[in-house]
């Protein structure tokens, strides 16, 4: 079976803590993602996301605090704005926008993190590997 590769950019305060809670609650989910912990989702530069696709990711997950809950006041709104803009560009790069997922997952939502990882893995499985012209050319 196709095993998609997922890069997860998680904020320290909410989503990474939620992922930790999934662990302490011993929830089980698919091992297709590797988490990279940032202080805030607003540290994610659209370039990091494009780089992840370039380097072989089939999907990218951004995890931040729920609207109104950002540890840095409004970092998650900036993230949302940046992702909305990036979504417009992804098409031009030949990347299905569904391969980029933005989720608000709080420190209390271990179950949500596990569900998102499972769902996203399944979705990417059905889409198959990302074929990226830029990547092919580089080869």
């Amino acid at each position: 079976m196709f095993e998609p590769k997922i890069v997860c950019f998680l904020c320290k305060w909410c989503t990474s803590a939620g992922a930790d809670l999934a662990g302490t609650s011993r929830l089980k989910y698919r091992p297709n993602g590797v988490n990279i912990r940032f202080m805030c989702s607003s540290r994610v530069d659209p370039e990091h996301i494009l780089w992840a696709f370039h380097e072989g990711a089939d999907g990218v997950l951004i995890g931040g605090c729920h609207p109104g809950d950002c540890h840095y006041e409004d970092g998650n709104y900036k993230t949302q704005a940046r992702i909305s803009l990036l979504n417009r560009l992804l098409d031009d790069f030949g990347i299905d926008t569904k391969r980029l997922r933005l989720e608000w997952i709080s420190a209390a939502e271990g179950a949500k993190f596990a569900n998102v990882m499972n769902e996203f893995t399944e979705e990417l499985r059905s889409k198959g590997p990302l074929k990226l012209a830029a990547r092919e050319m580089a080869k």
Partner: peptide, 9 residues
């Protein structure tokens, strides 16, 4: 505070 928002911007 080190959020990194300006770095991304």
């Amino acid at each position: 505070e080190g959020c990194g928002s300006c770095v991304a911007a």
